[in-house]
């Protein structure tokens, strides 16, 4: 119990004093996971909308693959990305292993199926008559898609929230492709794991609290955005 208090006090200390090391790690976490989420959204929403609306043979197989991908273990993604990015790997010439960009790639791969899956569900849930009505009103294809996306925005924001939640919380992939390098690829989750193995439980608890606060702030902002739409 005492350890928990020590950790909480340490967290407060770090936050109040604006510990530069922790601040750096926190900003990096936000940057990397933000970028990873952004890329997954840029891939996942268009892909999800397409899969929700398109009719083609094998569609169900593709959708089931996406649904399967929603549960991809981060450590598996990390391993595969690492295999490709290691110097000895096929993409080794990019010199990307152990950089923040490598984590962004791994996290985008983790989050993309999540965002896609949620998007398929969000668009699929819309009343099919809406589509017919919009077309009947003479909308162009682009206008139709835009209106559908607007109509499904609550579900789509849920997709973004879930995607972000998936990447901010993962440690396996970041550790493997980032290497937990101080000042470069040490994010909150890998730093927490490292402090545990160093036996610095107070710092580890402090970092975990900071991670949760950060995740909550971002999720809160997205939720505000999502629920604002309710009045419409």
């Amino acid at each position: 119990m005492e350890q928990i208090w020590q950790g909480l006090i340490k967290a407060l200390e770090m936050l109040v004093q604006g510990d530069r090391e922790v601040l750096g790690i926190t900003l990096l976490t936000l940057k990397v996971s933000g970028m990873g989420t952004l890329i997954s959204v840029l891939i996942g929403i268009p892909l999800g909308v397409f899969l929700a609306l398109a009719v083609f043979p094998g569609r169900n197989a593709v959708v089931s693959l996406v649904n399967f991908g929603m549960g991809l273990p981060p450590v598996v993604v990390g391993l595969w990305v690492a295999i490709f990015l290691w110097r000895s790997g096929p993409l080794g010439f990019l010199n990307m292993i152990y950089t923040p960009a490598a984590i962004v790639v791994a996290q985008a791969i983790i989050a993309a199926p999540i965002v896609t899956g949620f998007t398929i569900a969000a668009i699929g849930q819309l009343n099919p008559k809406i589509r017919l009505q919009i077309i009947a009103l003479g909308a162009s294809r682009v206008q139709l898609l835009w209106l559908l996306v607007r109509e499904a925005r609550m579900g789509l924001l849920a997709a973004v929230i879930a995607g972000f939640g998936g990447v901010i919380s993962e440690v396996g992939a970041s550790m493997m492709v980032g290497g937990n390098i101080y000042g470069s690829t040490r994010v909150l989750t890998t730093a927490t794991a490292m402090e545990v193995s160093k036996g610095n439980f107070d710092i580890a608890i402090a970092l975990s609290v900071i991670l949760m606060v950060l995740a909550y702030i971002v999720t809160f902002s997205l939720t505000m955005l999502q629920q604002r739409g309710r009045g419409l």
Binding site: L30, V32, G34, M224, R228
Partner: peptide
């Protein structure tokens, strides 16, 4: 209300893109 939602989206996307750019400039010399 609709407009404010759009503004919010724009702000978040911009912030994320900015964060991304920063990450990139840091890597550039590497």
């Amino acid at each position: 209300l609709k407009r404010s939602v759009l503004v919010w989206v724009a702000i978040i996307v911009l912030a994320m893109a900015l964060a991304g750019c920063q990450a990139k400039t840091e890597q550039a010399p590497r």
